[in-house]
Design a protein around this nucleic acid. Structure first.
Length: 436
RNA sequence: GGGCUCGUAGUGUAGUGGCCUAACACGCCUCCCUGUCACGGAGGAGAUCGCCGGUUCAAAUCCGGUCGAGCCCGCCA
């Protein structure tokens, strides 16, 4: 029966079979060391028999092996155990030299990202690349766990839509049996509609944006972590996000410590309640400190986002910070203005380690106001199949509600400390890349 | 959409008018090596310097075009 690399310790003295990929060869003459990779990590195998070593002649990294041998305690071996007196069987020979090396860290320099992604199919076998996505898997697990604990229902909404909906971001248009369809750039309206059904919903799914952005933080397809819930205020939304960030942070550092250390990640400092700064406060302090004037701007500049995170880390004891009090003039039509200050939107963004990872807001839940805002802010037609279902839901009773969208890749990138979202994406899609 | 930068063996880099018949490291091939873990040592193969054109006695190097890529801004998660 096959034993995994992580279980060898409990089989010392036993004759076992391991199976996996040839990860590294070191031939020392009368003694050969090889590393065999399986889903749990590496096993060191010591080969003394020349006939067994000969079986590896011409076999490249990636060759699939089945090895029978006895497990030996060996303090000199990585992990303290290794396989002795082995018999090798090459299950799948690999004789072509791999185009990139996978047994040492791959270059993540901007200039080399193209190569990194071009050979993604095997580059991901590099243990550091694998670690990134183990962490991402754990993040997703933690997110689900947290949402379930908070009584959210996980939903799936369609990604093929009849028409452009949310507005703002560019949408992909596709041919749908002779009609024009679009790819969803957000589950926005569906998750709002579903608040009328489940009260609390979340979805972790891809969205598509046809924006011609070529930056280290944009892709044309990414995974959006969306949540929407009813009978809340903006403060409830912030509490949920604070709890979620902390839950994920603690979860991955408890369950992926080895991976995070391999990636040289530093655990972010996050207080129980993440602090807030209003947009005008950020503008003011940023302008004063940097000499750049952003006072009249209605958004944050990327440089300002980085500055605000630095400020929060130094002065507020948090590597994440909420940005509140956005100008109502920039609201989307489904957003809600602050009840006691209609000049400001009831919106909150979350900045984390220099980048915007979340946009959230309270939604306008009164049908007549949404209708008005749709016409005035978006120039939208209420009869449009993209808008009508949302309006129908509003007409049929929607509680005060709000929610947010969070970029899974950005979240992964920042928790690990990478510098490009694409590094946190298995097979990234951007304006230039559609394969692999 | 605007701005800037970069394309040299499989990979990562050096070379920025003549010393380049293009160098180094990793990988690959052959040989030596019994405790390696970025093993070590000896030798070898592998590049028409992204492509096209121009300037020049001479171009990897300068100029123009083209293709490919990256970064920033706008916009966003």
């Amino acid at each position: 029966m096959r034993i995994l690399s992580s279980d060898l310790k409990s089989h010392v003295g036993d004759k076992v079979i391991i199976e996996g990929w040839l990860h590294k060869k070191r031939l020392l003459g009368g003694l050969t060391f090889i590393n065999v990779r399986d889903r749990k990590g590496l096993t060191q195998v010591v080969i003394k028999d020349k006939n067994e070593v000969e079986k590896l002649r011409g076999m490249q990294i990636g060759t699939i092996l089945r090895i029978e041998g006895s497990v030996a305690d060996e303090p000199r071996a990585p992990g303290g155990v290794e396989l002795h007196d082995v018999t090798l069987e090459v299950l799948v020979p690999v004789e072509d030299e791999p185009p990139i090396e996978i047994d040492k860290p791959l270059s993540h320099k901007p200039d080399n990202l193209d190569t990194l992604f071009e050979y993604r199919a095997i580059g991901l076998r590099n243990l550091q690349e694998t670690a990134i996505f183990k962490v991402q898997s754990a993040i997703t697990h933690a997110l689900r766990e947290y949402f379930y604990e908070q009584d959210f229902t996980e939903v799936r909404t369609p990604k093929l839509l009849a028409a452009a909906t949310e507005g703002g971001a560019e949408v992909f248009k596709i041919d749908y049996f002779g009609r024009e369809a679009t790819l969803a750039q957000s589950p926005q309206f569906y998750k709002q509609i579903l608040v009328g059904v489940f009260e609390r919903v979340f979805e972790i799914a891809p969205v598509f944006r046809a924006e011609p952005s070529a930056t280290s933080r944009h892709m044309t397809e990414y995974v959006s972590v969306d949540a929407e819930f009813g009978f809340i205020t903006i403060e409830d939304l912030k509490s949920l996000l604070s709890g979620l960030m902390n839950y994920v942070n603690d979860y991955i550092w408890e369950n992926c410590k080895a991976e995070l250390e391999l990636l040289k990640a530093a655990k972010p400092v996050l207080p129980k309640e993440i602090p807030s700064m209003s947009m005008s406060e950020i503008h003011e302090k940023y302008s004063k400190e940097t000499g750049q004037n952003s006072i009249d701007e209605k958004d944050l500049r990327p440089d300002e986002e980085r500055w605000a995170c630095d400020y929060a880390a130094k002065n507020l004891g948090s590597e994440a910070v909420f940005v509140t009090d956005w100008p109502a003039s920039e609201m989307k039509f489904y957003h809600k203005a602050q009840p006691d200050n209609p000049e400001l939107a009831d919106r909150v963004d979350l900045l984390f380690r220099g980048i915007e990872i979340v946009t959230g807001s309270m939604r306008e839940n009164q049908h007549d106001i949404v209708l008005k805002q749709l016409k005035e802010k978006a120039g939208g037609n209420p009869e449009d199949p993209g808008f009508k279902p949302l309006l129908t839901a509003m007409q049929s009773g929607m509680p005060p509600h709000g929610g947010f969208g969070m970029g899974l890749e950005r979240l992964t990138e920042k928790f690990i400390g990478l510098s490009n979202v694409k590094e946190a994406t298995l097979f990234p899609r951007d304006i230039n890349r559609l394969a692999p």
